[in-house]
Structures are given as C-alpha cells and as structure tokens.
Computed example of a mutant assay.
Amino acid sequence: MTHAMTFPTTPLTASGWELRVGRGSRRRPALEVHTGDGLIDVAVPGGLDASLVRGAVRGRRWSVAWGELPPGGEVLVEFHAKGSVVKVPAVTIAGAFWVAEVPGRYRSVAVTTAVDQVSVRLRRFREARPPQR
C-alpha cells in the first residue's frame, strides 16, 4: 500500500490520465497510474518486476507508455505507426520513472537507453462506460 508523499501529480492531457507518486516499501517512491476507471498500475523502482517499459497502451486518440528509469536516467522514446515515427520527450517522475504521451493511435513504442533498446506493442485501452439505462 502506498501513502501520499509531497510530490505533485502529473496530468496526462491527451488521455486524461493522472500519475501520482506514493511511498513504496523501504521509503522508495511508488508510481501510481490512474485512469478514469481508477488505479491500473503501481510500480516501485528496483523491485522484482522492474522494467524499462512497464506499460504501453493506446486509446481512441492517444498513446502513452511508462517505465522505470535506467541507471543514468535518460531514455529516448519513439512511437511507431504505419510508416511514421514520432520522437517524444520522456517526462521524469520522482527521479525514478519516465512517462511519454502523444496524441494519435500508434502500434508500438521503442525506448532506447545508452546500453539497451526495448520495443513493445501498445495494448488497446478502453475505459469502462457507465451502464445504459
């Protein structure tokens, strides 16, 4: 369970999502990914499930990816779609995570560091709709 720290929230304008930082085990920051449906991911740096790309999804008009910063803290993020590539600056969160968001529907994201490159296909994300009456 995470407890609020003094870090500000980071709104993602294209998706309407929000990133919050809580406190994980051993006083490490915990990245919380919130959608209109609620909390969908919690990541703590240096954990067993640490990953350069932790999540990569696309909505109807946006694409977003996030992950843990590597040693050195720099990543290059590229979203790929049919014949086009868009380089997006990654935003650093709590000195331990990165996030990148772009308007448009992309198929995959490539994240490059000084020593590694990971390419991941984006999953489709649909927010739950309120029940029809």
Rank of each mutant, 00 (worst) to 15 (best):
A90M: 07
V91Q: 14
V77R: 01
H80F: 05
R60C: 03
V44Y: 02
G16N: 09
G38P: 06
L76C: 04
W66C: 11
V120P: 03
L31H: 09
F125Q: 13
V33L: 13
A14G: 01
V57E: 11
P11V: 04
S25G: 12
V91P: 00
G38C: 09
T10F: 15
A30W: 00
Y106T: 04
G59F: 10
R28Q: 13
D41L: 14
S108R: 14
A50C: 04
V91N: 04
V77H: 01
V115Y: 01
A14F: 05
A94T: 11
P29S: 11
M5S: 13
V42K: 07
G47P: 01
G67R: 05
R107Q: 15
E101I: 08
W62Y: 15
Q117E: 13
A30H: 00
V53C: 07
A90H: 03
L39T: 01
Y106N: 08
R107K: 12
P71S: 11
P131G: 10
R123V: 08
V102Y: 01
R126L: 15
H34S: 01
F79K: 02
V118I: 12
A96Y: 00
E32N: 11
G24A: 06
E68Y: 00
A96N: 10
P11G: 07
G16L: 07
A110E: 07
V57F: 15
V88F: 04
G55Y: 05
P29M: 05
V109P: 08
T35G: 12
L69A: 11
V42Y: 01
S63P: 06
L48Q: 07
T13M: 03
G38W: 03
A90N: 08
R54N: 13
R27Y: 07
E74C: 00
A14D: 12
W17P: 10
H3S: 09
W17L: 07
A81Y: 00
L52D: 01
V85I: 14
P11M: 05
R20F: 00
V77D: 04
V42L: 09
A14K: 00
R121D: 14
G22V: 02
R58V: 06
I40C: 10
T10A: 02
G72S: 08
R107T: 15
L39A: 04
H3I: 14
E74I: 01
P11A: 10
A4M: 06
G59K: 09
R123L: 15
